[in-house]
């Protein structure tokens, strides 16, 4: 609960940081909360480092893409804020601190975690874009 609340506030914070228009704050931050919820729920059921992040990122991108179509605004606006809660800030930090302590096992495991998060976020978003892009092309043909 605390985590959801802090994600919400953090997302609004990032909205302000990026100078989002204030009428978008709530929508964008809700995207962030939803993305994180998906991640939390998935990580309970799927014991895997990759899949939950992938699904969460895909759902965040989907949310952003749909909302952007409705609002006729650039997708980036919502996308960045939706996936910001997945950014592996903590594992990046632990990788660095383990590196300094020369604790190579930890460097390895946290480093891998950071990379997996980053790759999963990227792949999740790309899946959604690929689908939307194809649909757009098909629609044009018809």
């Amino acid at each position: 609960m605390i985590q959801l609340l802090s994600v919400f506030i953090g997302c609004i914070g990032f909205g302000m940081l990026f100078h989002l228009q204030s009428r978008h704050y709530l929508r964008a931050a809700l995207g962030g909360v939803c993305t994180y919820l998906v991640y939390m729920i998935c990580s309970i059921y799927i014991k895997n480092g990759f899949i939950p992040v992938f699904l969460a990122s895909a759902s965040g991108a989907l949310y952003a893409e749909v909302l952007a179509r409705i609002q006729r605004a650039p997708t980036t606006l919502y996308l960045i804020i939706a996936v910001i809660s997945l950014v592996p800030g903590s594992s990046l930090f632990y990788t660095m601190s383990a590196f300094v302590r020369e604790d190579w096992d930890f460097v390895y495991s946290y480093g891998v975690e950071t990379t997996i998060f980053a790759v999963a976020i990227a792949l999740g978003m790309s899946l959604v874009w690929a689908i939307f892009g194809t649909f757009g092309k098909v629609k044009k043909e018809i």
Partner: peptide, 21 residues
């Protein structure tokens, strides 16, 4: 360009993400 808004945004996000983690 509103620096104040940027500042508040930065504070909110840094604070809440450190609680988040």
């Amino acid at each position: 360009y509103s620096f104040k808004k940027y500042l508040i945004g930065a504070m909110l996000s840094a604070g809440s993400f450190s609680v988040f983690f």
